[in-house]
Design a protein around this nucleic acid. Structure first.
Length: 432
RNA sequence: UCCUCGGUAGCUCAAUCGGCAGAGCGUUCGGCUGUUAACCGAAGUGUUGUAGGUUCGAGUCCUGCCCGAGGAGCCA
């Protein structure tokens, strides 16, 4: 008897198969039992009837409890009543582990706190499996995109001695008696690697000790960062929109069933990522927002209502570019035609998912970098290695960072970012 | 750190003006051959977050504290 995964059952109609998984749910009508079996690839309904199944098999099935693990042998049968188009007529069941205690997650509504407290079990149920399968596809699509474009996968350290942007709060740790921090960005290191390898990327964990308490923030999250030698601001934006377009289309191809289980409007998603994405200068965005009655003036950073308004106005991911230097970090290159602004852009996601990407062309001259460090009151010494990149073979270069969890939340159409990662770390959440 | 709302059975919630602590789900038992969060019948389930205060009487009103949710700021 062949071992099969639930996802591939539609191609095995009429065949005898063995499934290895867990009991998701059970419904029984006395002489007929419906067993919802899951194995991580999907859910299928197994059927047992009193007069066709062996009595001992029928009886053992009656004793099964939610989330008990089992190996099921049976024959795949096409059935239009089943959501996946097929069912399995069970011939025998090997119970691997019968749960004697009640499974803590009910297939009903529960509070976010309860579910997050039981995250290790919650991830087995409902929408959590499709979400995590979509996360897998997003991660894979990012790697595939960069691989196809000839980028080199690289790494940046997680333990660092200096802050990248100075402003953001860092997690401080003790490193053999000297202070160290958990990285809030791999960017500076990727700039160095890009000078060695040309075009590089990585997907790595990022740590921010901000006491943010919103649906868009985690204290530990994943960022896909890329850095490209000889790319200018425009090259940067072109690459970014192609990446987003690629990710979304790949996920639709590979995880259409999961998106439908989440009730995602796939046509809308497809329409949102048609190229090119709109581009608006910061200056024009301010004017647009003021025209719409929002309070904001030049030099202000966007708040949530501003992002949402821009997002709704365009109905697509939108680049806001040429932002004031005053609200941006020291490493961004000034716009030669308007030195108040920098050659940077934020990509605001549609449907209110906030900033998906932040990127910029980097300062490439030593003097300029030194003076911008001084402007931010940052000491030069810890950045000497970074300054070296401008002393030896400096070239124009650009890069960006993509927030992986926000991207997943948008693609899934789920409101809160905490469900897009197996174990979210938030201001009041370090367990499980 | 700030603002708003909340904490009652294992879970989700109700409890009118301050007057006997309730229901659904889950669980257990019984019934049902096509259920999709199955359904029907029966049973058990409480330190009302916590510490005080007001009152004949507090889940309900007042104060402090704890915890949570949403949002702000900051950001991806």
């Amino acid at each position: 008897m062949q071992i099969a995964y639930i996802k591939e059952l539609p191609t095995k109609i009429g065949e005898q198969v063995t499934l290895r998984g867990w009991l998701y749910n059970k419904r029984s009508s006395g002489k007929i039992q419906f067993l919802q079996i899951r194995d991580g690839t999907g859910v299928v309904q197994g059927v047992l009837t009193a007069n066709r199944s062996a009595p001992e098999v029928f009886q053992s099935a009656q004793a099964l409890t939610q989330e008990s693990s089992l190996v099921v042998h049976g024959i795949v049968r096409q059935d239009n009543r089943a959501p996946s188009g097929c069912e399995i007529d069970i011939t025998s069941i090997d119970v691997v582990h019968l749960n004697s205690e009640q499974f803590p997650i009910e297939l009903k509504q529960q509070t976010p706190q309860y579910l997050m407290d039981h995250r290790h079990l919650w991830i087995r149920t409902g929408k959590q499996v499709p979400i995590l399968r979509i996360r897998d596809a997003v991660m894979h699509a990012i790697r595939q995109f960069f691989y196809e474009y000839g980028f080199i996968a690289t790494e940046a350290p997680i333990l660092v001695g200096t802050a990248v942007e100075g402003t953001t709060t860092l997690f401080k740790i003790d490193y053999f008696g000297q202070p160290a921090y958990l990285s809030q960005s791999g960017q500076l290191y990727l700039e160095a690697t890009a000078m060695a390898l040309g075009r590089v990327y990585w997907i790595g964990p990022i740590f921010r000790a901000e006491k943010s308490k919103t649906r868009k923030h985690l204290t530990e999250f994943w960022m896909a960062e890329a850095e490209m030698a000889y790319y200018d601001h425009n090259d940067n934006l072109t690459l970014q929109q192609e990446l987003i377009n690629y990710i979304v289309n790949r996920v639709i191809d590979e995880r259409e069933q999961e998106l439908m289980m989440l009730g995602r409007d796939i046509d809308l998603l497809r329409a949102e990522v048609t190229l090119p994405f709109p581009r608006i200068t910061y200056q024009a965005a301010i004017e647009l927002l003021r025209k719409k009655g929002l309070e904001i003036s030049f030099g202000d950073d966007f708040g949530a209502p501003h992002e949402e308004e821009l997002s709704n106005h365009f109905g697509k991911p939108v680049f806001v570019e040429l932002l004031p230097k005053s609200i941006k970090p020291f490493y961004m290159k000034r716009d030669p035609s308007d030195p108040i602004c920098v050659l940077a852009a934020d990509l605001i996601g549609p449907e209110g998912y906030g900033e998906l990407i932040g990127g910029s062309q980097r300062v490439d001259s030593l003097d300029e970098l030194k003076s911008q460090l001084a402007e931010e009151n940052l000491p030069a010494e810890p950045y000497e290695w970074y300054l070296d990149l401008r002393r030896y073979g400096s070239v124009p270069h650009s890069g960006f960072g993509l927030g992986v969890e926000r991207t997943i939340a948008w693609i899934c159409g789920i409101r809160h970012i905490r469900a897009t990662i197996p174990f979210a770390r938030q201001i009041n959440r370090l367990y499980p």
